[in-house]
């Protein structure tokens, strides 16, 4: 009895101390106006990642993270001369901006879109993935056009959802128009769509995701097949929050690092390691 009260008291004391310390931290502000300066001063940079997205990001059995995005983020931090840490918020929370400083950047295969540009500051693309439509292995649907009037599953707040809803805009060039009258089923993350099929659910006929994710499901033995050619190719970039400390100098610095990583073959090697193909140059279609 006594021990337990002690335990509780200790927890409470620790928490109170933590809250006080945090309260003290937030009082500061002057040196935090520039993201790059802030990261260098702290010696760490926090990256957000969605570990339900292999081979870009996944959990290892020891609780660490692994994947293409994890390797790229780690290499960027190394070349910035800081330690990297990871946070795992939901994808929607990442693309919505207003990170409130909970994490500093996203190396999360985020597509550069005009919409996101309003709240997110992007670097140049670090790689490109084709968006691939998929159907169940025994489906009779023969082409993407046949999905008109059917329902298609996507990860919530992805470019795949925006494309189907007709709101996707890369700024530079517009992808082909999506099939008309598609009913969108948006789940928390892309893989949930394949999981639903795996569980025997027939709530939708198609699934739109990156070719790497679709391939991952096929490799895992799920009853999924690719449908036709990729529907569009996406430029994927490192992202920063516009509402936080000014990311301008950080974007410049990370752009320099990415150019370096493109140039010395680091990115190509990582792409070969995780995707078995080189996705680091624009498909140029």
């Amino acid at each position: 009895m006594n021990r337990r009260t002690h335990g509780l008291a200790r927890h409470t004391a620790l928490l109170t101390a933590a809250m006080l310390a945090l309260g003290a931290c937030t009082g500061a502000g002057s040196a935090d106006d520039d993201l790059l300066a802030k990261a260098k001063a702290a010696g760490t940079i926090v990256m957000s990642t969605d570990p339900e997205y292999p081979p870009q990001s996944a959990l290892a059995t020891d609780g660490s993270y692994e994947g293409f995005d994890i390797d790229v983020g780690t290499e960027i931090a190394k070349r910035l001369g800081v330690e990297i840490k990871f946070e795992t918020p939901s994808w929607e929370a990442i693309t919505a901006g207003s990170w409130s400083g909970r994490w500093d950047f996203s190396v999360g295969s985020m597509t550069i879109t005009t919409d996101r540009e309003k709240v997110i500051a992007f670097t140049e693309p670090y790689y490109f993935t084709p968006a691939q439509m998929a159907v169940e292995a025994d489906s009779t649907i023969a082409s993407v056009a046949d999905l008109a009037g059917q329902s298609v599953c996507v990860g919530a707040a992805t470019t795949y959802q925006q494309w189907l809803e007709g709101t996707l805009d890369f700024g530079t060039k517009t992808p082909d128009v999506a099939p008309a009258g598609v009913e969108v089923v948006a789940l928390t993350t892309d893989r949930n769509c394949a999981e639903a099929w795996q569980a025997g659910r027939r709530d939708f006929e198609g699934w739109l995701s990156s070719s790497t994710t679709v391939q991952g499901a096929i490799d895992a033995g799920l009853p999924v097949k690719q449908l036709g050619e990729p529907v569009f190719a996406e430029p994927l970039a490192v992202a920063f929050d516009r509402s936080g400390p000014d990311p301008t100098s950080m974007v410049t610095e990370v752009n320099r690092i990415l150019a370096e990583m493109h140039g010395d073959g680091t990115l190509r090697d990582l792409s070969m390691k995780w995707f078995d193909e080189d996705l680091t140059t624009s498909t140029g279609d």
Binding site: L15, A18, M19, L22, G23, C25, T26, S98, W99, S100, G101, R102
Partner: peptide
Amino acid sequence: LPQIWEGFAGVPTIV
């Protein structure tokens, strides 16, 4: 809450 008062953003999520 962090949009009302920024200080909340620094609090670890477990807290």
